[in-house]
Design a binder for these strands. Structure first.
Lengths: 186, 186
DNA sequence: TTTTTGATACCGAACGATCGGTAAAGTTAC
DNA sequence: GTAACTTTACCGATCGTTCGGTATCAAAAA
């Protein structure tokens, strides 16, 4: 392997930040080039499919990140409430304490390929499933657990939007504070 | 090519649909031209400030629509629960039963002018205020009413995002169903 | 009533800039 | 040398925007 200026992980995480900040249509190869330090043509060497492939990789990378830092830890043996508290801190980081939009949101606006749409849907469904499982583990019946899981994610996404418009991450922080009550038996 | 004319209201509502569907960056003058029936140059006659001015007009138009169909009716004398039910049906229409993104969401992504950002913030604050007042009217203390108002809007925005990703408006419909319980004393 | 006129609204064509994308040459590591 | 990788240079298309000119219509002038 010869001379790779920037690692795959860095390349992907920096691209993700650009996409999440400017949206799919607002993300230009020039911006990606600036953010990653790679020339446009170099991006095409890494991602022959161009912008669409980068967006898809960002979506899959987001899924992988969630799997590693949220889904899997929630599955490990241990106190559900304790695991949930750890997962919440991971989410706080992921969204930069409510200041960075969600990839699911910005990449799901019209303009993306069907592949991208599917990747986002898969990842979000996996998220719902992970939250459903932890809610069941803490004693809630299946149907109710599922309802609460969706409710939790709805509230995360919504508070990110509201917080962005109001220029105040208070709503997001409150949502994170309420997550344990939503996902475990109150 | 024959002359084409369109009323200010139509012009604005069609532009709003384009912006809400494709986002600020994804909305091109070509798309606006196609959606409104006016040539690009004609759009500049109506909006000398170009795309930014159209987006600002869409934001202010959204605020005006909400004021007329939601905020003001909620202020009129009458049973709070009844007024709320009517407002909910207006919101269902506004979001095309959960299939059309929210203008606050798509216009608040990076790229808009400070003026636009302010207009969105003002409109959302007015929405929160209107929901707070109706919650107070139905017997909730001020602080709790405000909390519930924000919660209601967070849930609307979040369910729109989740529904868009999952390709299923179920979450949005459920949110509307839950709104009375959120905004009035359960 | 008919004609003239001026303001308003609209359009076709073009601007420079930037878009996503490509080909080929140059550089680095093995 | 060769393969992996990056870069310079470039492409056609589209971006937001501008401008000269045309259509429309109401009011004034005939």
């Amino acid at each position: 392997m010869a001379h790779s200026t920037v690692s795959d992980e860095d390349l992907l995480s920096r691209s993700a930040e650009v996409f999440r900040t400017y949206g799919f249509e607002g993300t230009s190869l020039a911006r990606l080039s600036e953010a990653t330090g790679l020339e446009k043509a170099s991006l095409y060497h890494r991602f022959p499919g161009g912008k669409e492939q980068i967006a898809l990789a960002v979506a899959e990378g987001t899924h992988a990140w969630l799997r590693l830092h949220v889904f899997e830890p929630l599955k490990e043996p241990g106190d559900p409430r304790k695991k949930l508290r750890a997962a919440i801190e991971q989410l706080r980081d992921c969204y930069a304490d409510g200041t960075l939009p969600c990839a699911f949101e910005v990449l799901s606006l019209a303009g993306g390929s069907p592949e991208l749409t599917n990747a986002l849907k898969d990842a979000l469904q996996a998220w719902i499933k992970a939250f459903t499982e932890i809610a069941k583990e803490s004693g809630l019946p299946t149907a109710e657990a599922r309802r609460r899981a969706e409710q939790a994610i709805v509230q995360i996404e919504g508070s990110l939007v509201v917080g962005r418009v109001l220029g105040d991450a208070k709503a997001f922080r409150r949502t994170l504070d309420e997550l344990p009550a939503i996902l475990t038996n109150e």
